[in-house]
Design a protein around this nucleic acid. Sequence first.
DNA 1: TGACTTTTATGATCTGCATCATGAAATTAG
DNA 2: CTAATTTCATGATGCAGATCATAAAAGTCA
Lengths: 228, 228
Amino acid sequence: MKKDKHDCDLQTCMLCRLCIKEWLPAVDNHRKNFSLKKGQLLFREGDPVNGIYFIFSGTVKVHKHWGEEKELIVRFARKGDIVGHRGVGAEMMYPVSATALEPVTLCFIDLEFFQASLKVNHALLHELMMFYARELQESEKNMRNLVHMPVKARIAHALLTLRDKFGNTEDGAIDMTLGRQDLASFTGTTYETAFRVMSELIQENVIAVSGKSIAVLNAEKLQELEKL
Amino acid sequence: MKKDKHDCDLQTCMLCRLCIKEWLPAVDNHRKNFSLKKGQLLFREGDPVNGIYFIFSGTVKVHKHWGEEKELIVRFARKGDIVGHRGVGAEMMYPVSATALEPVTLCFIDLEFFQASLKVNHALLHELMMFYARELQESEKNMRNLVHMPVKARIAHALLTLRDKFGNTEDGAIDMTLGRQDLASFTGTTYETAFRVMSELIQENVIAVSGKSIAVLNAEKLQELEKL
DNA sequence: TGACTTTTATGATCTGCATCATGAAATTAG
DNA sequence: CTAATTTCATGATGCAGATCATAAAAGTCA
């Protein structure tokens, strides 16, 4: 992690946005900006929690592991998103890992100061609670999908979700590059299966792929697919 | 739902425990006690949220549906637990259903009053946030398990979890009765498979079953099983 | 720029678990 | 106290998707 002092603009993340003006200097004081190279690990599942992070640019995947080989991507975080909050709790260790998918700049807030902020700032606490609530809903929905939807439907759903979250570039591609392996880990399947399903979708003219960028050509069809 | 005024003792649930003394009369005023018969629905996925519930006695399953037939049990709630909080959020509708597994008495708090309490009571808000955080961790762990663990391991894990949460009766059985179908829905499998795995476990002398009550005979073996 | 690692690509095979089918037993309702 | 539902029980069959095997292509980096 390379240190860097000139990234955070103090208005991108939840912490800064919901901050009482008087508290901002304190935030400024306690934050540390870092940057990560593509593929670099931010923290690993099981690491002791010493703070939380806010992403200023780039994309991070949040993932859980099973053994050495297998993983499940739980969430993608991007500009403005908080990362590491899953570590807040009794355990005091991250229940997930976080890895940069591309060059990332971020802001670190030590736990103590963050918790002090929560104590002081009711709105922040409330917002964080609501955020957890949303993530919980999301997680449980995905869980049901995992159990009851076939792979193709899950991939359709994932593509729509990603498009929704990251938006499109001018040429219609989802504004995010993720490899097949990551797509597989995100949809709870294997690389090979993900690949085959993607091939099908290309054949059916539902999506177009070039390199790592994916364009949704027929969103309606995808919506249909995610229903079964 | 049968109305009933004599159940809640004002000290079992989170709301009452964390209440400022001065606020308790208000709580007492805004709560409504109900009881449910076994199998009765408390609320259904998609229903508009009009409040939250605290369980005073009995057990409730919280489940998500897929089509008419299939479900996934997301959580079991018992004495003192909050139910319906998943509805707190933008959507204003329950993302899950809740059904009594046995006769249940509970306490209803209308949403408006609950939210007022959150606004007024910082400790309550904090506790609720931590509760969400724990549930999120739990959910994501289960999600990973669902993807990477075979059914037998998931059932082993579920049995240990349930024993942990509900404890044992004098005769060593888990203090909770759930049918095979519910066990299946909880572990993300089908009735038939759950049944077969349970049979195996009985053959292997790891558990003993009589009717709906399940006794763990060999917890170590279960812990081993849940690792693969 | 050539050696190495990682990602993409694709066929062949295997299997865990879902599905289907059918009764018996146990609850629940009338 | 019967009829009607559920829940329990178990075998037979099928398939979606995991695993295995291999190789080309594309990044990465000394």
